[in-house]
Write a protein that binds this DNA or RNA. Structure first.
Lengths: 253, 253
DNA sequence: CGGCCTTTTTGACGATGGTCAAGTCGATGC
DNA sequence: GCATCGACTTGACCATCGTCAAAAAGGCCG
């Protein structure tokens, strides 16, 4: 709770976006230097966000926008019936809180899957900047459109593909995102549990587990609890694409 | 092709947003009168867009933003494998082309399901206005966030619910949208065919057909081809909510 | 290390919904 | 009217994946 906010901290991290190792992934790279300077003034660098801590809950009015610096975060919504619906996982460099743009309230919740560090921008400051910088607006519009495209992709995966294909796509997508962050794309640790993966993919825990086992049996991956190694990327990619998709194969008009 | 563009047309429709019957549904109501005046100057009112005519294709660079004035439109994407993926249906008042905001190119395609009329705003003009009006930016951000929320809802429907629930939700959603447009929410015509419905819901044609038949047998709706009458709204709503959802019922953390 | 709890895996079984196939309905054209 | 073509409906069958159950593997704490 008493986590550092503003001012120097003791982890050797820099205090300007310009020096940030994540700069090339962050939206800050896309705005003009002047705006970035102002951003630096209002950003609160927060660390010590521990596993299971919520960044925000659905329905809460948005107090800040955040960029994830380290760790990982699960985004989910709660349906009227009270079930959880996992909508995505954030990795370092991702921006958190865009879902509040329509109403000013968060559409969903976000919870840390492990120890996290963040850059937070108070909403008031951010809105002020938005009102003054069309450029920043464009960037936000683009980010939101991207998140939308991602949701659409997920839609394809979740509704229409068989279990093997869904899991293959999940692993590959994660792998690709890690690669873009200069992390090992073939050997990584799943920070979310089977339940979250299953929920995200629209499957049950058992099916996810079984599917991972099958992929291991076929020599395509190696799994040991949360640790995954991709052995045959080609084969995995083949599954993700070619596996005859069973449902609704109507051709384009 | 030679359809009217600009200037008077012969259907008795007005030429200012202020007089438009759709004004209360259109984003034009949310911007300041001054901007609306400018909008009026650049809008092209187009009619005679006939069934199966495309408004745009995926990958095309966006030439305009459009508001649907009458008729209905199907939005879809084409996957790498060449399958069609129906992502939504537009009704009068809906805005078409937001998907181009991230890259400048349309993410998906849009095709008329029946005779349509539109208000088109050339992208160049629109972008110019965006650059000058933070207010307009906010409105666009909100619209995009809403479209996103819609996509998320669809995600829930398509991946996790059984066929009966999906179809019930589809009918209710359509009904609600018609109601907001002051049309009869209980008696309407489906402008899309079964194939499109099935694809949108992540089901097969046969299952959609069977499910509609079952709903009819149970006295909840009456179907005759594309014509639908909702007989027992309560019962339909009950199906949409309470029908025990079979998959992934993990509780919130 | 041993107990306890949670997470994950594995197995057996059955229902939902996809597949294939045939039949009905409806619109259009001759 | 009749033929034809596509859209829609209905039926029979069966695969996939959810359900239920139990065992195995980790984690945590004493």
């Amino acid at each position: 709770m008493p986590a550092t906010s503003k001012g120097p901290d003791h982890t050797g991290q820099q205090h300007s976006c310009n020096d940030c190792v994540l700069f090339s992934l962050c939206f800050a790279q896309d705005i003009d230097p002047e705006a970035r300077e102002r951003l630096n003034g209002v950003i609160r660098r927060r660390q010590g966000v521990h596993r299971s801590a919520h960044l925000h809950h659905g329905g809460q009015s948005a107090r800040q926008l955040a960029v994830l610096r380290s760790g990982s975060i699960k985004a989910y919504q709660v349906s009227r019936e009270g079930d959880e619906l996992v909508t995505g996982f954030y990795l370092p460099g991702d921006i958190i809180g865009l879902d509040a743009f329509s109403t000013g309230e968060h559409a969903g919740s976000a919870v840390a899957l492990e120890e996290c560090r963040l850059c937070e921008i108070p909403m008031a400051d951010f809105n002020k900047m938005l009102g003054e910088s069309p450029r920043l607006n464009q960037v936000m519009l683009r980010l939101l459109a991207e998140e939308m495209a991602e949701a659409r992709r997920l839609l394809l995966v979740v509704g229409r593909l068989d279990a093997k294909t869904r899991v293959a796509l999940f692993l590959l997508s994660l792998s690709r995102r890690l690669e873009r962050r200069e992390l090992d794309p073939d050997l990584f640790r799943l920070s979310m549990d089977r339940r979250d993966i299953a929920n995200y993919l629209g499957l049950t825990i058992e099916t996810v587990s079984r599917t991972l086992s099958t992929l291991q049996r076929d020599g395509i991956i190696h799994v040991r609890g949360k640790n995954v190694r991709i052995l045959e990327r080609e084969a995995l990619a083949a599954l993700a694409q070619l596996e005859d998709r069973p449902r609704s194969r109507q051709a384009a008009g």
